[in-house]
Amino acid sequence: MTKLRPSRILRELRAGQRSPIIKLNLGDPRIIELAGLAGASAVWLCNEHVPNDWLNLEHQVRAAKLYDMDTIVRVNKGGYSEYVKPFECDATGIMVPHITSAEEARNVVDMVRCQPLGHKALDAGNMDGLFCQVPLTEYAHHCNTEKFVILQIESPEALEVVDEIAAVPGFDMLLFGAGDFSHRIGKLGQATHPEVVAARKKVAAAALKHGKYVAVASLFGQKDEVIAEGTHVYTLGADVIELGNAFKTMVSTFVGTNASTATDSVYKSK
Rank of each mutant, 00 (worst) to 15 (best):
V240Y: 13
V196Q: 06
V226E: 00
P194T: 06
V161Q: 02
A121P: 01
E160F: 03
K187I: 06
R106S: 11
V214I: 12
T2K: 10
E33W: 02
E82Y: 05
I185S: 04
K77W: 01
K187Y: 03
D28Q: 14
T145W: 08
V112F: 08
T137V: 13
E160S: 12
T145R: 05
G221M: 10
Q133P: 00
A40V: 10
L175V: 14
V50Q: 08
P20H: 05
V226L: 05
S101L: 09
T92H: 03
K270Y: 15
K187V: 06
G244M: 08
T92P: 00
V216N: 06
Y83I: 09
R8K: 13
A15S: 15
V214G: 03
R30P: 00
K187H: 11
T100Q: 12
C89H: 01
A228D: 08
C132Q: 13
I99Y: 01
F131E: 06
V84Q: 06
M111A: 15
E12R: 11
L24V: 10
A206C: 11
E58N: 12
L208I: 11
L122R: 11
Q222I: 01
F131R: 15
H59A: 14
E58D: 14
L130K: 15
F254I: 12
G118V: 08
T2Q: 04
H232K: 00
D224Y: 03
